[in-house]
């Protein structure tokens, strides 16, 4: 299974719930908004965490492409 993530930076307001759920995939930029750390294929072992990041983002700014 292939997985990538897309971040809608305009709707991101820096809740950082994504980084709490999947710290290997989401970090923070200098103003505390999300920064995608893995822009290509997400390794399989991180898929569950990425799904959690998506389902914890209050702004629904994360899209998973599979």
């Amino acid at each position: 299974m292939n997985m990538k993530v897309l971040l809608d930076y305009d709707s991101c307001h820096g809740h950082q719930m994504c980084a709490i759920a999947a710290p290997d995939v989401f970090g923070s930029d200098e103003i505390g908004n999300a920064k995608v750390l893995i822009t290509g294929e997400i390794p399989v072992e991180l898929h569950t965490k990425v799904r959690r990041a998506e389902s914890n983002c209050p702004e629904r700014a994360i899209t998973i492409i599979e």
């Binding site: 820096g14 980084a19 923070s28 930029d29 200098e30 103003i31 505390g32």
Partner: peptide, 8 residues
């Protein structure tokens, strides 16, 4: 004010 409140 955002930069002073970023996680890092």
């Amino acid at each position: 004010i955002l930069p002073v409140f970023a996680p890092q």
